[in-house]
Design a protein around this nucleic acid. Structure first.
Lengths: 145, 145
DNA sequence: TTTAAAGATGTATGTAAAATACATTTATTG
DNA sequence: CAATAAATGTATTTTACATACATCTTTAAA
């Protein structure tokens, strides 16, 4: 069972911006902080921006900030947004070629399990990722202290 | 969010054997019924056999049968067995390079969500995949009627 | 009003996991 | 001992994902 780095990185961006609190941060600085590809992050940020999770300010002195308070950014919605179009199994996608699909009960059970996964994430907001005991550590690691 | 065809195919094999009820079925026949790779199925069946989900009989007139009654084959256990070693995100695997791991709360939330996924599957057995209204359809599609 | 910085966008390339194929070995039965 | 079927090991192909590169657009400061 797997979710992409694309989604993983999008969570890291939001976490960075939450710790950065209000101020603008550039994609380059975020990419450097995590040691990940700036180019890949650009696509992800574009998507996060289009989905309304972050605000992107173009031009000189531009950068990124959260589009809402951490309390209002839901982890479940975020992961759903970023993972959409990634079918759990063949029969969840287009060009399904599984012959038993019409008589198959498995897909319903798998769909229910996937929904359980997301409903668990739905219970958490970005703010829940910012535990007091970890804030100093995060600030130090991301060189924001 | 994604699980591999490897796991998907393993479920199909069990479903086939459950519909086939008791009698031996060869890998070739199962692969042909689903229109999938016999070679790939061989690896999967080997794994299913090693994990005790199916019994494999070698040699002439050999083949496969379920190692237990459908009621006793749990979908959650099966998917866990087949998906093991596939980390949900980078920090769940070996060679994790995410710098914030020690101060990151996300991994706990993701682990909880994944557990919800499997616990949902734990509630179902292979027998639950064999609804009376679908048995005739399955037998026909798999040419077992 | 020009220049530099920053995100937006489109295309191309690299890479690793997954799927598939091929070849050989081992076990079993008639 | 011949045929059949699973077991095993290696190699190749395919695909999704990640990354890189190039160009365009927007914005603010010099």
């Amino acid at each position: 069972m797997h979710i992409t780095r694309y989604t993983d990185y999008s969570l890291r961006v939001l976490l960075y911006l939450a710790v950065n609190n209000k101020e603008l941060a550039t994609i380059k600085v975020i990419a450097d902080s995590y040691g990940i590809s700036k180019n890949h992050l650009m696509k992800i940020v574009q998507h996060l921006s289009a989905k309304g999770h972050v605000e992107a300010v173009r031009g000189k002195n531009g950068g990124l900030r959260l589009a809402a308070k951490p309390e209002q950014i839901n982890i479940g919605k975020l992961v759903r947004d970023m993972e959409q179009g990634s079918p759990l199994v063949e029969c969840f996608g287009t060009d399904n070629e599984c012959v038993i699909t019409p008589a198959c009960q498995l897909k319903h059970v798998l769909a229910e399990a996937m929904e359980s996964f997301f409903q668990t994430l739905d219970q958490y907001s970005l703010a829940d990722m910012l535990l007091p005991k970890h804030m100093k550590g995060l600030e130090q690691i991301l060189r924001l202290e």
